[in-house]
Amino acid sequence: MRPDREDAAYEDTTREELARLLPPVPAERDVPSAPYLHHKDRLMQLIDDTADQKTTPDPKARPRLLRPALLMPAAGLALAGALAVTFTGGGTSGDTTAQPHETATVLLERIAGTAAKSDVTPVRQDQLVYVKSVTAGAELKEDGSSTLEPPQKREVWMSQRVKRINKTGEMYAGGGYTSTHELGGSPAGVYRPTYQWLASLPTDPDALLKELYRMTEPEKGQEKAQAVFDQIGSFLGRDGDASGDAAALLQGGCEDPGVTRRTTRGTRRAATGSASPASTRGP
């Protein structure tokens, strides 16, 4: 055993020698941005929850909006199902009245409750998010009538990579497979929402809305609020236009005074689970 010397020089030589005796370790990495934000949000939420328990609860406190990514995989199917129920309840023409909207709101609350209790497995970067959907649309004609078009089957596989990628996924529609590409590449973010990116968003409704306003760029001739509204719709749908779902979500959880309700007649119905991770490789 070495003599008991505590000086720093001795420590340093020992450490240097140990480092030499070991093969090199892999280089240090930054925490990838999505998990970094996700774990920070978890920490902050735990702190807030602890603080909430200590102070007297405000009975009128606004319920915390569910983390969208948490809500989505578990509730995706249910949400689409709920809207399908509303849809069939609303009559064959696809015409909606006030009543189905209320039904959707009630159902959404129930779905949100279930989603909060569900333990969702996070989707990793090396996995793809798979969505199979059956959609049917109806176009509103000038005379106010509408005809329901035949349902379309659609399957998509979306990359969950954080980095900028050109090929963002695969799609099966109309009897053939096509790859989806993003010119110039697209990193995970508001325009290519991955599971992990969504999980990193704030869960407080006001904070979430503020963040969405910051991130969303309105298209030409579009108001900011409208763009944000559409954005929420695309998060819920993940795949294509699903503004009907978004309207329901906005009514259910996120009151946005700046948003004017659109009258799109469209509904979605998931044939299988929405956003169920399909592993491409690995354990």
């Binding site: 090396d126 793809l128 990359s159 990579r161 050109n166 490789r281």
Partner: peptide
């Protein structure tokens, strides 16, 4: 070799 998906692995 599956294009983009494989690089990080």
């Amino acid at each position: 070799p599956v294009a983009d998906f494989a690089e990080e692995s």
